[in-house]
Design a protein around this nucleic acid. Structure first.
Lengths: 141, 141
DNA sequence: TATTTACCTACTGGATTGGTAGTATAATAC
DNA sequence: GTATTATACTACCAATCCAGTAGGTAAATA
């Protein structure tokens, strides 16, 4: 399950995209708009900075800004930055020791395919796509 | 992430399918073959029984058997039985209270689409498919 | 110098994971 | 009816993760 960290990271990125004006946007504003605790946002941002998704500036007039255009961020890279690994099973994780049963495992191929499916899904969407998406799109009768 | 419960449940079902002979198969054998602790398997089976995926019989000559043919089980129903909900975000969970931001959430439509993608993926595969799948299938250069 | 903001570290309560231990219950074989 | 085998149930446990909170530091500006 995608945790709040990943979900909030996406919403923060979208917020920064929607309110970008060339300058820096203080997290206080994002926190208010997104109704996420400022303290918790402050824990999420450093990892986004480290992954070069945003740039932070200290002090008055400071805040964060995107480093690229919204359509240049895939959802995948934002989620991976915030969540770490997106592996659906532990044996496919980054630092998983090789499973001794891998050679005979009947389920491993499916998990790999599943992992690919997940990544393609999120790689095929950008922050710009999310900005355009409206919840009403989804009301299907 | 799919936990061991779901992954083991699948492997147990496949094992029961591969060794089915009309009778009941004791979990002791499955545990040995699959290298899963018998005690842990015993914790997984009751929920599979409750969901009518397998049938258990006490005593000598007892064990478990499938209630249908392997191609009549989708991977989805096995995972759902073992894992409960497969919702990728908490706001889409079974007993999640409705999110007050749902109407304006830019990410909700994606999560719903993602949930659908997940379910289709697992609904499109059966236990029989897994029996046929070989790990070697996946060695791509 | 005061204010604002990002950034860092440590802590916490609660839930989940991945089991184990022990016992009860049911079915069969003798 | 007794022993054996096997499922089923309940309780427990250590470790980890989640979702935050608290408090302080560092940097930039006015």
């Amino acid at each position: 399950m995608i945790s709040t960290k990943g979900r909030y990271a996406l919403r923060i990125m979208i917020d920064l995209a929607e309110h970008r004006n060339g300058g820096f946007i203080p997290m206080k504003e994002v926190a208010a708009r997104q109704e996420i605790s400022l303290k918790y946002i402050e824990r999420i941002m450093p990892v986004l900075t480290k992954n070069n998704l945003v740039k932070g500036l200290h002090g008055k007039g400071g805040g964060y800004q995107l480093t690229r255009e919204p359509d240049e961020y895939t959802v995948l890279e934002v989620l991976q930055a915030a969540e770490g690994d997106l592996a659906p099973v532990s044996c496919l994780g980054q630092n998983a020791e090789p499973c001794p049963r891998a050679g005979e495992c009947r389920t491993l191929p499916m998990w790999k395919e599943y992992y690919d499916t997940i990544r393609s899904f999120f790689e095929g969407r950008t922050i710009a796509d999310l900005m355009a998406s409206s919840p009403a799109d989804n009301y299907v009768i």
